[in-house]
Amino acid sequence: MSRKWTAALLCLSLTLGLALGGCAPSAAKQSRSGFYFDTVISMTVYTNDEKLLDDAQAECQRYDDLLSKTKVGSDVWNINHANGERVAVSEDTRDIIEKALEYSRLSEGRFDITIEPCVALWDFTGDAMGILPDGDALAAAAAKVDWTQVDVSDGGVRIPAGMTIDLGAIAKGYITDRIADFLKDRGVKNGFLNFGGNVLTIGGKPDGTAWNIGVQDPQGTQSQGILGVVAVEGEAVVTSGIYERGFDVDGVRYHHILDPKTGWPVQNELAGVSIVAEDAFDADALSTTVFAMGLEAGTAFIEGLDGIEAVFVTRDDAVTWTSGLEGRFTLQEQ
């Protein structure tokens, strides 16, 4: 075949390709923010679907209505007010509670959604912030905490009368995963979600490089509040620490990560833990669990899990990270 005919056929192929949509326009960057789950959320995706982020926000509202413990008629509100009776719940609610119980088993009770009676006695953001709860009342609340009493079946969820649950430690992670699935089902290949500090990336950047996600400085001593950055593609980065919600009394930091056995904030050498995992739910649950374990036990625990990594920051500003982050985590220069 002559070069002339080859060039003509190539030109015809390109023309047909464009006519049939073979060279589709590149996806446009779109962003949206809102307030759900008692926190600010933001979504940035690359898509030409003008309705997509509106639909995603509607999904966020649906989950908020379903899982909030304060909204009358939500699944969690109904469970907490059933006086020991079994409550029919949505598949999402059953799924998240079953996953939470798996982490309770895995962590030997350090993670426990029945800690709500203790949570209710603390105020880390409102008018009563800085006031310690009554010790006897907190001990009585802690006596009600027992994840093994949560009964989940196809018929619904039942907890003993007087016990209550709080999904706040894991709901954002679970919902972040589900919203990412929703976006990917609608064709999104690249993007990232930030749901109150729970960051989940969809793929990499459109140019093929990884996302560089900032790891929060729990002490606030680094520039712009960033301790370092970790390169991720299709992974979540979630941080828990003493900086998020808390106050100081007589030189003691009282924060929102409570010990299920006592109801008092966990006190150890850690200021913060950041988890890198494929799922935001795993990262969310593990950030709380591993913080409660402390540096040595928490590091060993994460090193024993496949596909999970962690960055640890101590109260004296020492920073360590698990072996799988070598070459992926870069410490910020002071």
Results as ranks from 00 to 15, higher is better:
Gly263Lys: 05
Glu116Gly: 09
Asp181Pro: 07
Leu286Tyr: 04
Glu85Gly: 06
Thr93Met: 02
Met43Thr: 10
Pro218Gln: 03
Ser68Ile: 01
Arg86Ala: 06
Gly208Phe: 03
Phe301Lys: 03
Gly324Tyr: 14
Thr44Cys: 08
Met43Ser: 08
Leu132Gly: 03
Ile113Ser: 05
Leu9His: 09
Pro265Val: 09
Ala140Gly: 14
Leu14Asp: 15
Ser107His: 05
Leu67Tyr: 08
Asp54Glu: 13
Gly214Tyr: 01
Met129Asn: 03
Asp54His: 02
Glu98Ala: 11
Asn268Cys: 12
Lys144Trp: 01
Val152Ser: 02
Gly225Asp: 06
Tyr46Asp: 04
Ile257Gln: 05
Arg245His: 14
Tyr46Lys: 06
Gly307Met: 12
Leu12Val: 15
Val237Trp: 01
Leu67Gln: 11
Gln332Ala: 13
Leu106His: 13
Arg94Leu: 10
Gly327Pro: 07
Asp64Val: 11
Trp77Ser: 10
Gln224Pro: 00
Val76Arg: 02
Thr70Arg: 13
Ala58Met: 08
Arg110Met: 08
Ala171Trp: 00
Thr70Gly: 09
Asp95Asn: 14
Leu295Gly: 06
Arg94Pro: 11
Met1Ile: 09
Thr39Pro: 08
Gly327Ala: 08
Gly208Asp: 05
Asp151Cys: 07
Ile41Thr: 13
Pro117His: 13
Ala141Ser: 10
Ile257Val: 13
Phe291Gln: 07
Ser68Gln: 03
Leu305Tyr: 09
Val87Tyr: 01
Ala292Val: 02
Val157Arg: 01
Asp134Met: 07
Ala210Phe: 08
Thr239Trp: 06
Arg178Cys: 05
Val273Lys: 05
Val311Asp: 00
Gly17Arg: 10
Arg62Cys: 00
Glu116Gln: 14
Asp181Met: 11
Met129Val: 07
Trp211Met: 01
Gly298Tyr: 05
Arg253Thr: 11
Ser33Leu: 13
Thr70Ala: 11
Asn194Ile: 02
Ala120Pro: 03
Gly155Gln: 11
Asn48Phe: 14
Asp92Ile: 02
Asp95Lys: 13
Ala277Leu: 10
Gln30Asp: 06
Ala19Asn: 13
Gln61Lys: 14
Asp134Trp: 04
Glu269Leu: 09
Leu9Ile: 09
Asp49Gly: 02
Val40Met: 12
Phe37Cys: 12
Lys205Thr: 07
Asn194Met: 03
Arg62His: 01
Val76Ser: 10
Lys184Arg: 15
Glu244Phe: 11
Ala180Met: 09
Gly156Tyr: 00
Glu309Ala: 07
Thr201Ile: 07
Ser68Leu: 05
Lys144Phe: 01
Asp38Gln: 13
Cys118Arg: 07
Gly294Met: 10
Asp284Met: 05
Asp49Gln: 07
Ser90Asn: 06
Val87Ala: 05
Leu183Gly: 03
Gly191Met: 04
Ala128His: 13
Gly263Ser: 12
Gly162Phe: 04
Glu116Cys: 12
Gly298His: 06
Gly21Leu: 08
